[in-house]
Every structure is written in structure tokens, then in C-alpha cells.
Design a protein around this nucleic acid. Structure first.
Lengths: 360, 360
DNA sequence: GTGAAAGCGCTAACAT
DNA sequence: ATGTTAGCGCTTTCAC
């Protein structure tokens, strides 16, 4: 690569000072038209591109918003890729949707978007790489230790996505999540009220997953409201929430002592889809013998047979809200009060719950 | 936001020089463990985050790769959103796939990814914003005037995606594209040889679309090879390549003087899907009355009935190759010779061409 | 309207 | 192993 042309080069060649060159870009109006055009001409000729770094250093702002997500933002993505073959390309991952939402919103606000997935590094890791180059950023919950975030949050706005709800309000972090609890309650109630389910089972995530726990709470709330026995723990917990785990979970529940449940409520779609396969393999009919529901609203849920009844999360909007929050802070608004936003989810009724079939 | 802590603050509080603070981050090994930990402690305590800008300025590199794409990277995306309702969320756009591919590859190479869609700005526009903040970047063909790119390419590696093939080799730009011509030839040959089509029609893009033209060349080549009459122009050209346009095109071809074609070969999937709807609306059976093919391999093509026979483009891989090229250049390799890479595409046989149905 | 000069926060020789 | 010293390329008062 040739050596970079700088303000100095441009200034010299066009017979003005570097200050004027700078002005041509920052406040074109403040430079006489004739001078401006001369400078611009030379700039083009030299292939001059203002250094974003120098600019940022001098003006203390970058015009960039960031997004950090875990190396593994999508439960079962890898597993899916290997199982499903060609469908790998089709699957829209969470991170993709969030990225898209953020990119659009950032663009509207004149920002670019810097994305980075974790990948262990030096002393302080991923966040610093991002934090050092943006005006503010969003983090998928769990990507970064809360302590680190809190420290950085003193310098720039940060919004946590999809993380712990009203709980650990220890910090200055803004927060956007979807209504996990409400959504799970609604879908469970649907099972109970519309399909007469009275002995469902819940397959959840590890207790360390905030989303998983919130969903279980919603599930439980629905049972309680219907005067059904509500266990204090999920019937089953799995580690990865993959299709494979979902299939395994279905097998286990089918074979368990108390008899098979009337419905299996999964904490995400991946598992539910895995279960659908496993159930079909064993000749168990869905929804006639057992109803199945998921959570997330992945595209695959529409392709499987029977179609998966689930709760759709507005991931795109999540990204957009994150940007709105960041931009708001950057513009000086919202100074102070920590914001925590919950986006509504929606029930998607397909066939796996019993809809479109004779009532049980 | 509180005021930023700098190397100076950290250095002072931990009783070392700024050089040592810097070393703690750049080459941890070169600092005595005890010192290092003290510095790190103070850093954390102060909420210190190295300024990426200052870093970049001093070291002339950012650790970031960029991607520029047009505000409108996806043919028919907007149209699709309004027509299809809920499917908006599901559709995996080109840009999404490229982004995903680039992000993964970038991550593997220790880079973060900066993405920005065009949006008119100051004197020099989008590219400069990106170019000033990255070590190299990819551009979707047509996003940026070739002249600007050429100028910037003197400073940093640039790779053009999906653009003009071997043609305008005026510059230092590397280049990655998919085998448009080969793919279109193959699918056309398939129609001719497997399904006995002898009077197909081609619906292409405007002549300014390099992809569209390449596809038409492939189509033509297949006709020529089969000793069929090969027109020098597409039977129809449309502006936007949307579903609506595809539907309209189908109507026109059906009604045209010479009689309906045996097959309609569309230059992209969006149009083909639109045509499928229109045809069904008119009671024309696909593939019995007329075969239909697309190009791209969008997920929707698998959902429609009949399933759309098409050519799949490896967009993900396109992003990955772009990063590989960039990283290669940055590591000093490839110095000089302009690289132009063509990725193979693959034929996806579904039902719209006549496969899985009685031969015509 | 334009120039001069002082940083912005860090890295990278070069000393010690 | 650690400190000193120059810049890196730009923005930004403050003069002229």
C-alpha cells in the first residue's frame, strides 16, 4: 500500500494551511468556494482520505456504535448446521436479526455499526477492542462480565440486550429485553384453555440463563392461574438448548414413570423442533398424542410438520431500540435514570399445539 | 458520561510510566508480573479503556475490516416486506449473509467488522467514513463510484463484491464474485436437456446490472450450445427485479404474440416467485404448462409451491473470501497482482422446472 | 476567510 | 524491566 496522504500534503499542494483543509470537510461553508474547490480537487488527486483515528482522537467521538455478542450467540447453531445440511445458509440467527435492526437504526442516525464476537484476547478482551472505537455500544447479555461493563459505562452509554430483567439493577446500564415471562405464560394458557391440557411438562435451560428462568416463571404463572399443580422446577433442564437436546428431552419425558405429558413446553424452538423429529420417529403423533410448543419464532418453525406453535420475539426491534437508547444518551438526553425496556412478544399458533385439528 | 481515564492517569496512580501501561496491554510478557497486576488493578479501578483512536493513530492500524453496501442491497427487499407481511423477519437478505460470512472470517483473523450502508453525506460520502476507520474493506459493487475506490485503493486493500467480472480491469481492486454465467448456463441446459424445453424466454435486469448481463450470457450460451435460436437480448428486461415485476413479466410473456414460452427463465428468485403467484392466479400450471426457474437460492424458494428450481449463490462464502483476500493483502502477501476470484454456484432442482413430475 | 499552535491518547524507538 | 521522547493526523481555539 502506498503511503497515506495527509492534511499536510493536501494543504501544501493547494497552498493553504492544514486548518483550512480541515474546515473544508468539517464546515464547508466557512471556506471560500474557490478555495474549497481547489482543496477538494487536490484531495481527490492525492487520494486523500481523512484518518478516522486522528479525527476521533481530536474530536473525541467516532460516529460509530458497537455490538458485542458471544462467540456463540445462537443456541444450537452449530449443531443445526451439521444436522440440517443445506438449511445452514437459510437460518436467520438471532445475532443476524439484531445486527440488521441495529444497522438500520444506526444508519438512520448517521452512525456506522461495529460488530464483534468474543474471542479471548489480551488483558481485557473483546469489549475493550470495541469500546475503544465507538461512541457507545450494545452487548448481548452474558457476553461480558458485569463488572467490566459497569466500569466502561462511566465513559460511554451501554445497553444490555436480552439480559436479566428488573433484577440486578446495580449499574448504569440501560437495558432492552423481550417479554419472556408474559410470552411463556400466554402460550401455556393457550394450551390449557384452548386445548384442554392439564398435564404439561416444561423443558428449560440451565438456571444460569435469565431468559430460561423468566420463561419458566411465565409457565408456572399460567399453571397457577389455572389451578393446576405448578412445580417449582422445570421438569427437565438442558445445557445447550439444541435440537439434539430437545430430542433427548422428548424421549425422557415420554418414558418417565408418571406417564407421558399431554404437552411438552420447550423454552426454545430449537429444542421443540428436535423433539418433533424424535416424536415422529417413535410414532407418537403431534399434536394428537402430545402437543409441543417452542419459543423464539425461528423460520424453521414454519417449515416443520406439524408447524410449530411458538412465541415470536421481535429481535430486529430489539436492535433498533438499543440504538435509540444509545443515540438518546449520546445526545445528552436521558441523562441519569437507567432505562429498562421490555418489548412485547406475540403468540404464533400453528399446528403443533393442536390448533387446526380436532380438539383433544 | 464521566471524563475518560487515560494512560497518564493509570500511569500516575500506579507509579509507572505511560510506556509501561502501554506495554501491559501490548506485550504483557515484557512487564514484570507484579507491576502488570498493579497496573491492571488501577486500570480496572479507573474504568480505563485504551482509546482505539489513539492506538490506531500511533500504530497506523485499526484491527477493523469494513463493509460498504448500497442503501438498497437487496433487490425487492422493500417490496417483499410490504407484500409478505410476517415473512419480512424471516428473509435472509444478501447483505445479511455477506455480513455473517465476513464477521466469522474476520473474527477468526482477529478483526472486528465495521458495516455501513450508503447514506449521502459531506464532501466525499460514505466510503470515507469507513475507509478512515478500517485497515481494509469490501464494497458491494455499485455502491461507490469506481474512481473514488481506485484512489483509496492506493492506501489500503479493497475488494469489490459481486461486481463486473473480468471487464473493467482498470484498477488495483481485488474482486470476488459468483459464477453467474456458468450457473445460468447450467440451469438453462437442465431445462433443455432434462425437460425438453425448446422455446424458453429470459427475463433479465437492466443492462447496467453486471450480474444480470452475465446471467443472460449464460442463458444464451446454453441455447447456442443446443442449436436453439438465441436472441441477442433478453425477452424482457425489468427495472427492479421484484416479485411484482416478475408477476407482470409472466403476464406479458403469456400474452405475447408468438404464443407462451415453454419455460420462463428469470434472472432472480424474487421475480420467479412473483411469476409463480401470477401464473397460479391465471390457472396456468407450473411446470406442466410452463416451467419456471430463478437464480439466487433465497429461502422463500423452498417454501413456495411448486418449489422453485434455482441456482444457489454462496453469499456467505463470498464474505469469507473477501476477508481472506483483505487479510492476505494486509499481511503483505499478494502484493501486486490483482486477484479476481469466482465462486462456484450450484443448481437446486425442485419442482418448478419439471423435476419430480412427468416429463413434458 | 485563513493561519498558527496546542493538544487528543497512544505506540515505538531509543535510552537506561 | 522500565522510563523518555517523539510523533501519528486531525480539530480547535485564538489571532490576524
Amino acid at each position: 500500500m502506498g503511503t497515506a496522504a495527509t492534511v499536510y500534503d493536501v494543504a501544501e499542494r493547494s497552498g493553504v494551511s492544514i486548518a483550512t483543509v480541515s474546515r473544508v470537510y468539517r464546515q464547508p461553508e466557512s471556506v471560500r468556494k474557490q478555495t474549497r474547490e481547489r482543496v477538494l480537487g487536490v484531495a481527490r488527486e492525492l487520494g486523500y482520505v481523512p484518518s478516522g483515528n486522528a479525527r476521533g482522537l481530536a474530536s473525541r467521538s467516532t460516529g460509530v456504535l458497537g455490538l458485542c455478542f458471544p462467540d456463540y450467540a445462537d443456541p444450537g447453531a452449530e449443531a443445526e448446521a451439521s444436522e440440517a445440511g443445506e438449511s445452514d445458509d437459510d437460518a436467520m440467527l438471532y445475532s443476524d436479526q439484531i445486527i440488521r435492526g441495529m444497522e438500520r437504526a444506526a444508519r438512520r442516525n448517521g452512525y456506522a455499526l461495529l460488530i464483534a464476537a468474543s474471542l479471548e484476547e489480551g488483558p481485557e478482551g473483546l469489549v475493550h477492542k470495541v469500546a475503544g472505537r465507538v461512541d457507545g455500544f450494545a452487548v448481548l447479555a452474558g457476553t461480558v462480565p458485569a463488572g467490566e461493563l459497569a466500569a466502561i459505562a462511566r465513559r460511554m452509554p451501554i445497553v444490555v440486550l436480552a439480559g436479566p430483567g428488573g433484577e440486578r439493577r446495580t449499574d448504569l446500564l440501560d437495558h432492552v429485553e423481550v417479554a419472556n415471562e408474559d410470552g411463556q405464560e400466554e402460550i401455556t394458557r393457550h394450551l390449557i384453555e384452548e386445548h384442554g391440557v392439564r398435564r404439561p411438562a416444561f423443558v428449560g435451560a440451565g438456571a444460569e440463563s435469565p431468559d430460561g428462568e423468566a420463561r419458566f416463571r411465565g409457565y408456572r404463572r399460567a399453571l397457577l392461574a389455572a389451578d393446576l399443580p405448578a412445580p417449582s422446577e422445570p421438569d427437565l433442564r438442558v445445557g445447550m438448548m439444541t435440537r439434539a437436546e430437545g430430542a433427548r428431552a422428548a424421549e425422557i419425558l415420554l418414558d418417565r414413570a408418571g406417564g407421558a405429558p399431554e404437552a411438552i413446553v420447550f423454552a426454545n424452538d430449537q429444542m421443540a423442533v428436535g423433539a418433533l423429529h424424535a416424536l415422529e420417529g417413535r410414532g407418537v403423533r403431534v399434536p394428537e398424542d402430545v402437543a409441543v410448543t417452542g419459543f423464539d419464532g425461528i423460520p424453521l418453525g414454519r417449515l416443520v410438520r406439524p408447524g410449530l406453535t411458538t412465541v415470536r420475539q421481535p429481535m430486529r426491534q430489539l436492535g433498533e431500540e438499543a440504538v435509540n437508547l444509545l443515540v438518546g444518551r449520546l445526545n445528552g438526553g436521558l441523562a441519569g435514570e437507567r432505562v429498562s425496556k421490555v418489548l412485547p412478544v406475540s403468540l404464533v399458533r400453528r399446528q403443533s399445539c393442536g390448533c387446526g385439528t380436532a380438539p383433544r
